[in-house]
Design a protein around this nucleic acid. Structure first.
Lengths: 332, 332
DNA sequence: GCCCCTCTTTGGACCGTTCCAGTACCTGTC
DNA sequence: GACAGGTACTGGAACGGTCCAAAGAGGGGC
């Protein structure tokens, strides 16, 4: 009644358990007829290797932990795709954990993954307490993906090039003839980079005195409020570049409520190319982070560290692309 | 350099490994001073139990596998919250797997979870091949959550009461004075239930001849197209009830393009209360599935089955609630 | 002082793998 | 026919825990 073990398979095939182990791990030092006998026996018994026993013996789990900061915001899905493609090709499985779920239970979000002795850790997005990763990084390879927060030593960082993305948007708006361009800023490393790049790009085009920056908390509500403030200024901007899509959605609502048509009276651009930006009802001009690529690079970093390559933490940036949709148009 | 084991702790505390094991599992048959010595030694060494060794010996993993059908559509997040709260309280950890990620690699999406010998399985949403669960259900408890597909024998089903939810929406629209009410239908068990309940409710209110049903593929594009067809009919409906939020978003776009104002000229309602419905820019009237409750009930089912309660598969329905927002108003 | 009983503590078997050091057998060489 | 050198296979010791039977330590009653 218990699941069959390697010994059951061995007995049925008339060989030793060691030989079964050899066959199942694909050794070529086995005579074909024995190999077939073993495979047939395994098949007939419905044998599946016990991962716990294997990792106990091998002293590794062939598993990479993926720590997500918030499942509610699904921008990371493409990133996971990219991660998975490379990890899977290297015989590694992924194990997902939601930092938010475990946070309320009071323990370190990475604990369940560490208990399982994952061979490596990918942190997706911004973590409440990145410093805690320092200890972990001392034991297993750690990569932070999709976030630009300062990483503890020994941790690699892979993310989109926020500076370049913000420049793409700003130059797009300038190219459309906009001069009074406002930025709805966010917080954290990402917020800072996008904002500074916006300002620098404006300066480079001789628009230093037209720079308007309104802070926000990167939520829809925050984007809405910031836009209301912006649009009630005497020198109303003709374009708004929001730090992310969700704040841009708030900007769209504010424009609508104040009777401004988008993009006729006001251009709005976001950042992240979330699924919401792709909705026909929204059709938001935005920046795509090429998350799939970020995921692949993160996997690559991890694989290199498994091979012993590494040293200090590296930073890799993926090149974002501009997605021009329906919310930006020539200045009125 | 290797992580400390139970034997290292034992040596440091000056006791046997068995006693360490007893202490760590919370036995009360241990003298306080020894207990303290053990706990201190464990603390000092930074000992963490090896999950693989433990599950090998205990012959269970204290882990529940959660199979998600598509991370891209984050309606399941509240459900996971509910699941997690109860499972965590019972010393079980959750392990997430994305069926879509593994699908492209060609293997059964539950395979990684089964290799890890999870003690139970929760399937969230609709799976491509539910029949495959039959085999699994023979070995470990399986619960399907948030989907109404027919379940293999021995599998419990916990979901929202789609019949009731669709009735709530339909009666809300009828109560607002609407008579020509159209339904943008979906497919599958959920689509069928919502549609039949819509029709039955219309009949019960003497509106059998006003029933209009337009099929869709439950995407934004599908909702858009269905609505364009509906609105170009001579007897244009004054209200549209879409099978889910995302199709309702498509309906909003279609209405906008055809010059109809929502909710003044056309009321639109969705289903699922996704985060998109909560956006101020959308502010969609919809049905909340009380997913948190669904998750808790699913966890409860699983826990009961662990205790040996069970028998044939049961079906449990959670009571949905109507979220009235800005897209429904009295009939013109 | 001895026996019995309860409360603590311990050694060792076991869980299902991998891995290593052999063993057995075969083939070719001198 | 002895021997070297492969190739193909095997037994047993890990891996790090849990669990159980049994040993040791005290205490009380006679």
């Amino acid at each position: 009644m218990r699941p069959p073990t390697i010994r059951d398979v061995a007995e049925r095939a008339g060989v030793s358990k060691s030989l079964v182990s050899l066959v199942l791990r694909g050794s070529d030092q086995v005579r074909p007829e024995k190999r077939d006998a073993v495979l047939r026996a395994a098949q007939e018994l419905g044998y599946r290797p016990n991962a716990a026993a294997r990792s106990l013996s091998e002293r590794r789990t062939r598993t990479v932990g993926v720590l997500l900061n918030d499942l509610r915001n699904p921008w990371f899905v493409d990133l996971l795709d990219g991660l998975n493609s490379l990890l899977h090709a290297n015989g590694l499985r992924m194990m997902l954990a939601d930092a938010r779920l475990n946070r309320r239970t009071g323990q370190d979000p990475a604990d369940p993954l560490l208990d399982l002795r994952v061979d490596g850790l990918v942190v997706v997005g911004t973590l409440p307490d990145p410093a805690a990763l320092g200890d972990v990084a001392g034991r297993i390879p750690v990569v932070m993906a999709g976030s630009r927060e300062p990483a503890p030593p020994g941790v690699d960082v892979v993310a989109g090039d926020d500076e370049r993305g913000a420049r793409l948007v700003t130059e797009h708006l300038i190219g459309l003839g906009h001069r009074r361009i406002a930025h709805i800023a966010g917080y954290g490393a990402v917020g800072g980079l996008r904002r500074r790049s916006f300002e620098a790009t404006m300066r480079r085009h001789g628009l230093a005195d037209r720079v308007v920056v309104e802070p926000s908390d990167m939520t829809e509500e925050g984007g809405y409020r910031a836009t209301v403030r912006l649009l009630s200024r005497p020198d109303r901007p003709t374009a708004v570049f929001a730090v992310n899509d969700i704040a841009a959605i708030g900007a769209l609502s504010a424009a609508g409520e104040l009777g401004l048509r988008v993009p006729h009276d006001l251009s709005v651009a976001g950042y992240d190319n979330t699924s919401i930006a792709r909705l026909r009802h929204v059709w938001l001009t935005t920046v795509d982070n090429t998350s799939h690529d970020v995921g692949r690079r993160a996997a690559h970093c991890l694989l290199e560290r498994f091979e012993g390559v590494g040293g200090e933490g590296r930073i890799q940036l993926a090149t974002p692309t501009l997605e021009i949709r329906g919310t930006t148009a020539p200045a009125p």
